[in-house]
Amino acid sequence: MLQLDGVSKVYRVGAFGGTGLTAVRDVSFTVRAGEVVSLIGESGSGKSTIGKMILRLIGVTSGSITFDGTDIARLDGDSLRAYYRSVQGVFQDPFSSYNPVFKVDHIFDLLRGTYFRDAGDADWRRKVEESLESVMLDPAQILHKYPHQLSGGQLQRLLVARALLLDTRFLVADEIISMLDASTRIDVLNLLGDLKGRGLGILFITHDLSLGNYISEKTVILSRGRIVEMGATGRVYGNPLHPYTRALMGSVPQLHRKWSEVEADLAAKGANVAGRCIYHAQHGTDGGPVAPDGVATGLVEAEADHFVGCFRPYLEGAC
């Protein structure tokens, strides 16, 4: 459905774009229909940049993103509007996603102006109300309010409802629950699970490993703009291979296991890979594609449906 192929993003910084800042380097993965892929990384890993490139909000420096076989870089005008009919996004900060001078209905009015010009008032109202009900919101309590009169959880669900109003088949969910309270965040997360059941492909961008594990079929671990590990969620979590993934797993606070227990467990599991760069062990000294700073950006298949990248710079001397 959606495919990223060697995607890189370099930001120009300084006067007249003198120097470049590489935010994303040589990233490739696919998302299928009815599948949630979680893209996990810390701040500055480039995860949101990837989401924005998929949504065509920023351009790709090199590589390509294809949706149903079409390179999205070529879209413009009508074809871009058609793309947005199928591909939508929801972002981290629910309050910043609404224009504060308008009532929340504005996000629906915008869609109507582009995609539903022919819809009659009654028709349109019914459509909006249906989509609100499908995300378990009561239209009477939500519509005609200003954003600051609603809670973050309500606002995020409203954004999902907006996406459902179109024939959305692919959703980019960028940290959509990190600003919500515990008692409401799980409902929004479950909503994503339900959408997956309806056949949507979802890219779930998060920094929280436990959330990614809960919802996704496939996990992509991103660090400093490149993929360090990727595969079926069960494999990545059950047998983390890359030192960065292992450090992440060791640091994420868990509810019923202390850090020390997790660490001991990881050490036991990792005994087989200790100190050895799996990527270069398979590839030999000729390491495939290399980024300007000398780190190999490719991946090797360490086991079925489980890929891992070079261990540098997290484990010096391993390769």
């Binding site: 949504l55 939508q88 996004g89 972002f91 996603s97 996000i107 915008l110 869609l111």
Partner: peptide
């Protein structure tokens, strides 16, 4: 601000 992104994704 993200509402600008949202408007762009609404085909504006």
């Amino acid at each position: 601000r993200e509402f600008v992104d949202l408007a762009r994704m609404s085909g504006a």
